[in-house]
């Protein structure tokens, strides 16, 4: 063996030579673990790819301009998802307007103003966490009960669906906003307060503006979850066959997931292809929304 410098006799106890020609990371135990990790990834990714490829193949024949421009029809060759696209847009926009301000306000109160040692505030905090995990259909039932109490007869209206979806994603937005607020360093708040600013001014002028990217990201992700929901809307009696454009928040509507659900249940093969094509469309919109969320996060992320 070649020595580069001098060696000192007796300074190092001779054990294993450093240049043994083996690699400790390649022993059986670590290697097995590594292979298992890879396998998990392959399984997870493989399922996803199979699913996407299958629906793309199924739906490719129906993925035409007609899908965007036509109304549902009794024949798959004439049918399109136009009311579902517009319905989804109406419901999600209404949900966003109803939920985002409310969610941000609740999060700001919990994070910036509430005394965290108070049992009542701690209970609310715990429950918000739990609510985020409640199945979506439960929110559908809640909205149904609420609308019944108000004496609304036609519950399959845009505002009704938006109410159910708002209840569904409100906890998600509250949690995302709290995370974003928590990521703003305490030093910034203290710096502001030490100059004689009030807590209100500090929140409004320092903490919230710094948290906007995180809030936007969380809100978009929550809305994309709402966009994919069918169950709570079906509970409210959302129409499965709509041949008109929704015209306002009191108008009847259908959404993309409900349209897919409807077409999948039809016997004709042509409707199954339409359902697949609509799924691809929905998937595309979701990918775009999540992409936007990632873009906002990376573009405006602050390094403190």
């Amino acid at each position: 063996m070649r020595t580069l410098g001098g060696t000192i006799d007796g300074a190092i106890r001779p054990e294993r030579p450093l240049a043994s020609g083996t690699n400790g990371e390649r022993r059986p135990a670590p290697l097995t673990f590594l292979v298992l990790l890879w396998l998990s990834l392959v399984v997870a990714f493989g399922v996803l790819v199979t699913l996407i490829v299958t629906i793309i193949i199924d739906g490719q024949g129906q993925f035409t301009g007609r899908l965007l421009s036509e109304y549902p029809a009794s024949s798959p060759d004439r049918a399109g998802a136009r009311p579902a696209i517009l319905g989804s847009a109406w419901v999600i926009a209404t949900t966003a307007i109803m939920t985002i301000p409310l969610g941000i306000a609740a999060a700001v109160h919990l994070e910036e103003f509430a005394d965290k040692r108070n049992w009542f505030n701690r209970m609310i905090e715990l429950n918000v966490q739990n609510l985020a995990a409640v199945p979506s259909i439960v929110y559908g039932l809640l909205a149904l009960a609420f609308l019944s109490l108000l004496g609304v007869r036609d519950k399959n209206i845009v505002i009704g669906g938006a109410l159910a979806l708002s209840l569904l994603i409100l906890p998600v937005i509250i949690i995302a906003t709290r995370e974003a607020l928590r990521a703003v360093p305490t030093e910034i708040r203290e710096g502001s307060l030490a100059l004689g600013a009030t807590q209100w001014q500090t929140t409004w002028r320092q903490t919230l503006p710094s948290a906007v990217p995180g809030i936007a990201t969380g809100s978009i992700l929550a809305l994309s979850r709402a966009l994919g929901e069918a169950a709570p809307l079906l509970v409210l009696g959302a129409l499965v066959f709509v041949s008109f454009d929704p015209s306002g928040i009191l108008s009847g509507y259908t959404t993309l997931p409900i349209q897919i659900f409807n077409w999948t249940g039809r016997p004709q093969e042509g409707f199954h292809q339409l359902a697949a094509a609509t799924s691809v469309l929905l998937l595309g919109v979701l990918v775009l929304m999540n992409g936007l969320a990632i873009y906002i996060r990376n573009r405006f992320q602050k390094r403190w």
């Binding site: 030093e187 203290e190 710096g191 030490a194 100059l195 004689g196 600013a197 009030t198």
Partner: peptide
């Protein structure tokens, strides 16, 4: 807190311009 100011251990400028960092205090008070 306005009459008795404080400077902290870690420099904590606001994520704003140099000018706005100085002008912030007079504006909010």
């Amino acid at each position: 807190r306005r009459r008795i100011g404080m400077v902290f251990q870690k420099p904590n400028p606001f994520p704003k311009s140099i000018y706005d960092n100085i002008a912030y205090g007079p504006r909010v008070t």
